[in-house]
Design a binder for these strands. Structure first.
Length: 427
DNA sequence: TCTGGGGTCCTAGGACCC
DNA sequence: TCTGGGGTCCTAGGACCC
């Protein structure tokens, strides 16, 4: 099936045929982080640019510009590999506030076209532009206008159009950058049939292995299969994958902006083996999570600690908080106990992570936690809450590195330096 | 080559309740 | 003395996504 590109006049012919069915768009920003860097640094345009973590500190590639991809560099690749493949690339650890700002501008354009927008990540969104009584504009015309408006911001996007989310997503991957790929109603099965099962959103490395072991190579194989066999193999998601592969998926476009967890984790440049270092790292992460919770106005009911050992295996524990909380001092206190379940003297930790979950009802009420007993049996009052508030204000004004609590200072020399938002923690 | 960080969702087993 | 069944909640682990 040959698809015209967005510059191809044959789109005009396609757009003259009324669209019969749901019209789902998947808008995907091209090499987004790298493109923003090239927009902001004219000298980097036309050059390989890699946004990612430090190659010497266990970093990975976040985004590679198209110039860098020619060398085989891609997202999630270890930075050390990327450096070997493309030693002359421009490197940056990223400027996430700036990416968020650009993303918001793009999302505003999408919302300007229709309220039916589902943002799936910082650089991707589904839209439902099904022609209705009020707005009968052809989806192709909408997509082309979106591409023009996004380019006016200085970045570009690729768009897939289809009758389901899965089809739109697959279509958007067909032609990048600046691609527009249309799968007309009724042609879904032919479009998907030759694709490998792994291409489908929801089928990862594990499901692919199972499917291949049972002789399923393509989405066509999958679509033609007896349901029971796939459900036995993949469980509940098997049923979902079958619907997707058959072009029958009916999932709506819905904007679910409810936050379900807030977390922070760090892989260390070198494994940590000392309790004081591990606790200092945990204190830093607890502080970041606490501050982000307060900024979002959230208080969670469950606290989780995760570690990755030197052998790369992962373990985690979670505990209910005594009341909905955003209080890093409480977090730190509990995390210290929780660490005992995951770590003993002599163990090396590659990663530690802290997460808070459980924001059940809208009724966020961190103030329920004004009183609690600390180790010494003393009642801790509002005072440390005031300290947190004051600390938040200093950090808002002067940056994350401006102020840290005593125990956090032990973090010196242990981090990966993976975040440019927070360089002082790792120097 | 040596493997990030921020998330969401599913599963299986155990506790607990009726 | 031998021993249900269903529902729900919690926990830990894992798959998956960008």
């Amino acid at each position: 099936m040959s698809q015209p590109t967005s510059h191809d006049t044959s789109f005009d012919a396609l757009a003259s045929v009324p669209w019969d069915g749901r019209a789902i768009l998947l808008v995907d920003l091209d090499a987004f982080f790298a493109s923003v860097e090239q927009l902001d640094h004219p000298a980097w345009r036309g050059k390989p640019v890699i946004v990612g973590g430090d190659p010497d500190k266990r970093g990975v590639v976040s985004t590679a510009s198209y110039e860098a991809r020619k060398y085989g560099v891609h997202s999630a690749m270890p930075s050390s590999t990327a450096r070997r493949l493309c030693p002359d690339a421009v490197w940056t650890e990223g400027h996430f506030d700036r990416y968020r700002e650009m993303s918001n501008k793009v999302m505003a354009i999408l919302h300007d076209e229709t309220p039916h927008v589902q943002q799936v990540s910082i650089d991707e969104a589904f839209m439902d532009v099904t022609p209705t009584g009020v707005n009968r504009e052809h989806p192709i015309l909408i997509a082309r206008r979106i591409q023009e408006r996004v380019e006016a911001l200085g970045v570009s996007c690729s768009i897939g159009i289809g009758t389901t989310k899965a089809v739109a997503k697959l279509a958007s991957d067909m032609d990048k950058p600046r691609g527009l790929t249309v799968v007309t109603p009724g042609s879904e099965a032919n479009f998907m049939a030759p694709m490998p099962v792994r291409a489908l959103s929801g089928i990862g490395a594990s499901a692919e292995k199972k499917l291949r072991e049972h002789g399923f190579e393509t989405l066509g194989d999958l679509a033609a299969t007896d349901d029971d066999e796939i459900i036995k193999l993949l469980g509940k998601t098997g049923a979902v994958m079958l619907e997707r592969a058959r072009g029958l998926e009916n999932a709506p476009i819905e904007n679910d902006d409810e936050v379900k967890s807030v977390s922070n984790e760090t892989s260390f440049a070198h494994d940590l083996t000392e309790r004081t270092d591990i606790e200092a790292a945990i204190a830093t992460m607890a502080a970041k999570v606490g501050r982000r919770l307060r900024r979002k106005g959230l208080a969670g009911t469950t606290l989780a600690l995760k570690v990755r050992y030197a052998d790369f295996s992962v373990r985690s524990v979670q505990r209910p908080l005594p009341a909905p909380s955003d209080d890093e001092f409480l977090f730190r206190h509990m995390l210290s106990d929780m660490l005992d379940e995951l770590w003993q003297q002599g163990m090396a930790l590659r990663l530690v992570g802290v997460a808070v979950t459980g924001f059940d009802d809208d009724g966020h009420d961190a103030d329920q936690l004004k009183l609690f007993d600390d180790d010494a049996g003393e009642t801790v009052s509002k005072s440390h809450k005031d300290l947190q508030t004051a600390t938040d204000k200093v950090k808002e004004r002067f940056g994350e590195g401006a102020l840290r609590y005593g125990r956090e200072l032990r973090m010196h020399g242990t981090g990966t330096g993976s975040s440019s938002k927070n360089p002082a923690d790792y120097k």
